[in-house]
Nucleic acid binder design. Structure first.
Lengths: 335, 335
DNA sequence: TGTTAATATGATACCGGTTTCATAATATAC
DNA sequence: GTATATTATGAAACCGGTATCATATTAACA
């Protein structure tokens, strides 16, 4: 059917090994022969069959990316970084979207088998010990982005620190009654960011000798609407908080909507800090913690490619910085 | 290194052909032999190498998906439909993100070669005649989603009709001065939706015997911020429109922001209709044209798989319906 | 019971590349 | 001018599956 290396060899009057050498830029081909082969390749409009190459070399030139809820802006942004970095290489990106725990387990168990991919990038999901074990046994490198496992390569952000930054900012503005709006702490996917942000919230309170009031802590589904309800709940307490730290910008926006509905002006009556610094945040002038979503994807790819090429002994860990972006949704506590 | 079919054959005391038969559920294997082979497979923890299988069968079990700006909500939603549909099959999804014309051409030219993928799904990008030709020559099926080419399988939405619905709604409410906020008509990517919506706008005006005022037509970059500026421009005209049809919900939101800034209440002072019915729209109670983004992805996959399996003669075209969703951003023209 | 049909199975060619290894041709050294 | 090192090249093995085809075994039938 299609043109193979043997057709080219025949046409150029050489052996297939020579054609292969030309294709792979081997130095030991005479200039004359090389030209003849290149001509035959051009004449026949030949391109090597990548599948055959993969079988023969044992490399799939493919990276598997496992990502949960890939329509959510945070994950999309990370995925975009991954995509961008991979597009500059010869690797293909195979996408696995996870929306259920069953899918998570399925992909994490399937991918190390069969040598389907040369490496796996996992976004925001932490594999079990058994799953990590399978990766090691099949010697398929894994890199976790915003997830953790002691034996894995990781690209992480210190969300405890990020939450601390947000809280310190509010505290330094004089706020003492600070609410927290976040995701369910017992989410079955166990996103590490969720727990870490809450931990940072509590740490910062403790460091400032402020008591933790459980009713200032709201947890719920992710999304603007759920956050609006949580914000409403906080703001209609007998003694409402004067500032709210939201675990994501999306949730911060929900909180601000709740405030608006209740006739509270931001930042005059209520200070709000978000997290992630998504696209909309700058536009909405939201004070937030910038986390390098896109860069985390890029860094993950770099780490993975390194692991694939050199298979070093020690798993590496890259920690990316967070940054407080002060905009217009926070202000000193009025007295 | 890893375990092959030959190891299994040896262990089970059979030939490799028999193991292959067991793997592929061939009926002509005695129950006893089958059990012995299955046992050997389990003992050795064997899984067949998919690359070898691909080379041998000539099927890659892989679908290439070309999508522009895959972080934009509309495209993500379509992609999600594609992903969902593919996850129920044995096909892998290889993602190609397009952000420049060069990338578009590169992917559209590369993918038909080499038999890298069994089929290609193209979202919102229309291939050139030459590119379609290459697909035909290499007999790699293509399906276009929300894009067009006379010789391709297509899943489309009639945006002319959609725009007409939006306009008829506004006109029936008594509006006569209706602005249009949309993307650049001469966008180099030539998204068909852009032109079609504008065409629908003009058609509806003509049908209602309303004149088209060029200064009521704003075009600009996609995105909320650009739309806000366009909205501002329209609303500060000497004789501003009483209603605005925006080519996307994101843009409609921008327009509404402009209105708010100018102290105009919606829908009392200004009616706004969007397009797409993205997630936020329901929440914001935006009157909009619902277009089945997710479903278009699913339909595209179904069409593609059919094309791969049966290679029918005639390219098929699936037309998905649009629907006007009347919510709370449109009202009768006050007099 | 002999013959034919049906069933089960293994040997082997094949998919289209890469890689090893032996060899022919040429260059260099003595 | 012969011996040796270097360079260029092709034949063939290999990657790990699938598929064909010939054959051995068993069942069905006259």
């Amino acid at each position: 059917m299609s043109i193979t290396i043997r057709d080219v060899a025949k046409r150029a009057g050489v052996g297939i090994a020579t054609v292969s050498r030309v294709l792979n830029d081997s130095p030991s081909v005479s200039e004359e022969t090389r030209q003849r082969v290149l001509e035959a390749i051009a004449d026949l409009n030949y391109t090597p069959n990548p599948i055959a190459r993969r079988l023969s070399t044992g490399k799939t030139l493919t990276i598997g990316v496992i990502v949960p809820f890939f329509t959510l802006p945070d994950f999309v942004k990370r995925l975009q970084g991954v995509q961008q970095a991979l597009s500059e290489t010869e690797y293909d990106l195979v996408l696995f979207n996870v929306e259920t725990l069953a899918q998570k387990d399925r992909y994490l168990s399937d991918l190390p088998r069969h040598a389907r991919v040369d490496g796996v990038l996992v976004i925001a999901l932490s594999p079990s010990n058994m799953q990590m074990d399978q990766f090691h046994q099949s010697s398929v490198p894994v890199v976790l982005i915003d997830a953790s496992h002691p034996l894995a390569y990781q690209v992480v952000v210190d969300h405890v620190h990020g939450a601390n930054l947000a809280m310190q900012h509010l505290i330094s503005l004089g706020h003492r009654r600070i609410g927290f709006v976040g995701d369910h702490l017992n989410d079955p996917f166990e996103f590490i960011g969720t727990k870490q942000r809450f931990q940072g919230y509590r740490e910062a309170l403790a460091d400032a000798n402020l008591e933790f009031y459980p009713h200032y802590h709201q947890q719920g589904d992710h999304g603007r609407e759920a956050a609006r309800k949580m914000g409403h709940a906080l703001l209609t307490l007998q003694e409402p908080p004067t500032a709210i730290f939201a675990a994501s910008d999306t949730q911060a926006i929900g909180v601000m909507e709740a405030a608006r509905e209740l006739g509270l002006r931001i930042p005059d009556h209520l200070s709000v800090v978000g997290y992630n610094d998504i696209r909309d945040s700058e536009y909405m002038e939201l004070t937030t913690i910038h986390q390098p979503l896109f860069d985390s994807g890029m860094a993950g790819v770099q780490l993975l490619l390194k692991a694939i090429e050199t298979t070093p002994a020690e798993p590496e860990k890259v920690i990316l910085p967070v940054e407080l972006k002060i905009r217009r949704t926070t202000a000193p506590l009025p007295h």
